[in-house]
């Protein structure tokens, strides 16, 4: 197989992957709705649900002994404190649109925004 041919296929693969992912990303950004509720899930179970338009600070405790502090302010939700060592959830962006999520893998906490009367 000539090397040139392989490189062309490489470029095609890269192009397809970037196009597919980029298009999906753009579509989700274009069609996203403003969120109304913040849903907190721990271990796959709904743990709590809070209105996005009211400011609040929520202490989420998990059965495993971990905790996360969720803050709702100015229509945005963010995790401001966590018991885990990596703090990836704290460094994630504030979320305000439907289907945006903040995930804390070690504590198995998922914070997501939903819209409407769900």
């Amino acid at each position: 197989m000539p090397a040139k041919c392989k490189v062309r296929r490489d470029l095609l693969l890269i192009f397809i992957l970037l196009l597919a992912a980029g298009a999906t990303l753009c579509l989700t950004l274009l069609f996203r709705l403003p969120g109304d509720w913040v849903v907190v899930e721990v271990d796959g179970e709904e743990w709590g649900r809070y209105a996005l338009d009211k400011g609040a600070s929520i202490h989420i405790e998990t059965e495993a002994g971990g905790y996360n502090v969720l803050e709702i302010a100015d229509g945005c939700a963010s995790v401001i404190e966590a018991s885990c060592p990596d703090k990836l959830c704290v460094h994630q962006h504030r979320i305000s649109h439907s289907d945006e999520t903040i995930v804390c893998l070690p504590n198995r906490v998922v914070v997501s925004v939903v819209s409407g009367r769900e």
Partner: peptide, 30 residues
């Protein structure tokens, strides 16, 4: 694995970003 461990499908929304990241990283590594 993350979806299975957390028992949630919410995190598939990260997939496009992870595909772009994986592609760019793959180019450098390759």
């Amino acid at each position: 694995v993350a979806a299975a461990v957390m028992r949630t499908t919410q995190i598939v929304y990260y997939l496009p970003i992870l595909i772009i990241g994986g592609t760019l990283a793959g180019i450098l590594i390759g």
